[in-house]
């Protein structure tokens, strides 16, 4: 069943696309603007006739701009001058640019609708509920994945796996997740060294399996029971034990009790 798409991932995708669009749009606006500027600077080199010719035929943007702002022609400017004069600065009595006015109204309408949706009709989730939805969607996906599988071992009867694909699976998982604390080579960082014979909670496969499954209360070692299926835990535990005696460089010193296999 193709149910690999998480709710959050899907919405993330939309958000990302939206963002990319916004950024692209902004970049485009800047690019057009810079081009305009450059063009303006190049025009310096034009002759009078060339300039006059260009001014005769206005581009579509200039026409649109004039229309949206409902500009009064430059020749009528005199009529618009207010009789004030501040240190030589005069002001024109132009009306508000219509598109600007509509933009303002639009944002006000948006705001009213926004507040209605979230706080009056409560038809869109606020952040706490949004979080619950996100978590539920993630959990649901997990359930689908783990449906009806019966495992023939538990934490007391688990045995080492020596299957190479399974060990490789364990290694891959260890490198990305466990390595954050135990270092990718198992030599230990925030968490203890896993490559020597000293263990805080025992060094048998069942011990390691239990630590991964249940976590160690009071430490940073969390429980992975809800995150990994038993096979995966066995793979990781087996991989960890395969690191015994590898002596990686800069490993942490002994921590915990000496454990000899077979005891």
């Amino acid at each position: 069943m193709d149910n690999n798409t998480l709710f959050s991932q899907e919405s993330m995708l939309y958000i990302t696309f939206g963002l990319v669009l916004v950024v692209a749009l902004l970049v485009l606006i800047v690019a057009v603007y810079v081009l305009q500027l450059l063009k303006a600077f190049i025009r310096k080199d034009m002759t009078e006739e060339q300039l006059a010719a260009e001014q005769m035929e206005q581009g579509w943007f200039a026409r649109l701009w004039t229309k949206w702002n409902s500009f009064r022609p430059m020749e009528e400017e005199e009529e618009l001058l207010l009789d004030h004069d501040y240190d030589g600065i005069k002001e024109l009595d132009n009306h508000l640019p219509p598109w600007w006015k509509w933009l303002f109204y639009l944002t006000i309408v948006y705001s009213v609708i926004y507040l209605m949706i979230f706080h009056v009709f409560k038809s869109s989730p606020l952040q706490e509920e949004e979080y619950e939805l996100e978590m539920t969607a993630a959990a649901k996906m997990k359930q689908v994945e783990q449906v009806e599988v019966v495992y023939d071992f538990d934490e007391n009867t688990v045995t080492l796996t020596t299957d190479q694909t399974e060990l490789a699976d364990g290694q891959k998982f260890f490198a990305t997740q466990c390595g954050v604390c135990h270092k990718a080579d198992g030599g230990g960082l925030a968490g203890p060294n896993l490559t020597d014979k000293y263990w805080r909670n025992g060094g048998d496969i069942t011990d390691v399996y239990k630590v991964i499954k249940n976590g160690v209360p009071g430490t940073a070692m969390i429980s992975w029971e809800n995150r990994l299926n038993p096979i995966r835990i066995r793979n990781v535990a087996s991989y960890v034990l395969s690191l015994q005696g590898t002596n990686p460089p800069n490993a942490l010193g002994p921590d915990g009790d000496l454990y000899e296999p077979g005891n």
Binding site: E77, I89, E91, L92, D93, N94, H95, L96, P97
Partner: peptide
């Protein structure tokens, strides 16, 4: 901006109404 831009450009400010709003 309302002082130095019209000064440097030697142009009247576009819209008094817009300033107010």
């Amino acid at each position: 901006m309302y002082y130095y831009l019209p000064k440097a450009a030697n142009r009247p400010v576009y819209s008094y109404k817009l300033s107010i709003i």
